[in-house]
Write a protein that binds this DNA or RNA. Structure first.
Ligand SMILES: [Mn+2]
Ligand SMILES: [Mn+2]
Ligand SMILES: [Mn+2]
Ligand SMILES: [Mn+2]
Lengths: 217, 217
DNA sequence: AATTATTTTTAGACTAATCTAAAAATAATT
DNA sequence: AATTATTTTTAGATTAGTCTAAAAATAATT
């Protein structure tokens, strides 16, 4: 049985690994988990003896299958709870992450699966992130970043990277939500900001905003 | 912010205090929490410095208002989650306690209150225990133990003491549930077992069973 | 290739929660 | 009242998770 801390390390390593597709460095984990590298080293040694990942001094870590299974289980719970909070308890999408950080550590497969059923086996969470099923499988649909979208093509907003509450609130304020139809009109050469048409209204969003919006492809 | 462990101590002290109506002894806490008395002493000192209870060496402890408020908040969450599990996720009443032991430590007033609303502001949990409202208030209805019921009077089963899963399963097996109409027919002098009529069927239950069944008064 | 910068690990210390063993206080019996 | 039993506390040790400071390894620059 893993502790909450161990689960958080495994989950974070999985996420970094998925993005970078390389061995995960001590420092990158420390930054994400807001701890010191020395603390991370200690934990990596422990997780290695628990056979959840392979660790070589100075070379970073790589999750093995056991570690990946645990990561997917925690992510599954996180996203199911976020969905529950939004769909059943009427939370907004910028309020759910912190609470899900707690709920993702509740240990009961029966609870997780009943919750899944209660929600109608959702495939994506309120931020458009895929929800792994009971076997840890999920279909990751191909999405395209707003910055890469062809001019004048309309597409549907399906996923948000950087689910910080500040960013999510910004989107809500501008009536940009999962499911919104977005058309890109013009990319400003100077600062890479983008003119977009959303809900028949034209607005300009900065490059850093555009980079976090992903659409159907 | 209290740790899970601290919350469990506070909750247990509250429960013992409610039953015994006396200062709570170190040993009684140790037994209930399955720890050693020396461990309890350390924790009592800590909780005293945090001003949640008054502690005098060798004299036991008594929760103050701050401590009681915390206890009621944890109990509220525990019973709301049990209700959620039974009413919304179709768990049986003997499966929910362990999961609620985890969920009761989730920290978010908004979540607790939204859950309360989602459930329709229930006043009792699946075992007939009262659920404190957002202000920590609850109405404790007067109940009478099956052993004290007048012969041939019918009454409704409203609360179960000793919510161990074994006991709850025993009741379910005999079709005795919260809401069941029970009439007491005869008390056996020899072993204090009781003949009762439940759902038009006569059965005999032992004294230790009868002692844990409480009915409307 | 040598120097400098960055990353990672080691060493030693701290807090929270726990334990065992022994001492001290309180309660119960003779 | 003295003795015995029980309860509670103290003292010292352990594990998980964290930190700081220093050492070692690796990477980047001159
Ligand atoms: Mn999240
Ligand atoms: Mn999410
Ligand atoms: Mn319970
Ligand atoms: Mn209950």
């Amino acid at each position: 049985m893993l502790t909450k801390t161990e689960e958080n390390y495994i989950k974070e390593i999985f996420t970094i690994e998925t993005i970078t597709k390389k061995d995960v460095s001590t420092n990158s984990i420390a930054k994400k988990l807001d701890t010191k590298p020395s603390t991370v080293t200690d934990m990596l040694k422990k997780l290695a003896t628990k056979k959840l990942l392979s660790y070589q001094k100075y070379k970073g870590v790589k999750l093995n299958n056991k570690g990946k299974t645990i990561a997917l289980s925690v992510i599954r719970k996180h996203r199911l709870w976020e969905t529950f909070l939004v769909k059943k308890l009427n939370f907004s999408w910028d309020e759910v992450h912190e609470i899900a950080e707690q709920l993702e550590h509740i240990k009961s497969d029966k609870l997780t699966n009943r919750l899944d059923q209660f929600l109608g086996f959702p495939t994506v969470d309120p931020h458009g992130d895929p929800i792994p099923n009971a076997n840890g499988e999920f279909t990751k649909t191909k999405t395209i970043c707003l910055t890469k979208l062809t001019i004048n093509t309309e597409s549907i907003f399906v996923e948000v990277k950087n689910a910080s509450d500040k960013f999510l609130k910004y989107l809500s304020k501008n009536n940009i939500a999962i499911g919104s139809k977005i058309k890109i009109l013009y990319i400003e050469e100077f600062d890479n900001s983008v003119d977009i048409l959303v809900n028949n209204k034209q607005i300009n969003v900065s490059e850093s905003v555009a980079k976090n919006i992903y659409l159907n492809n």
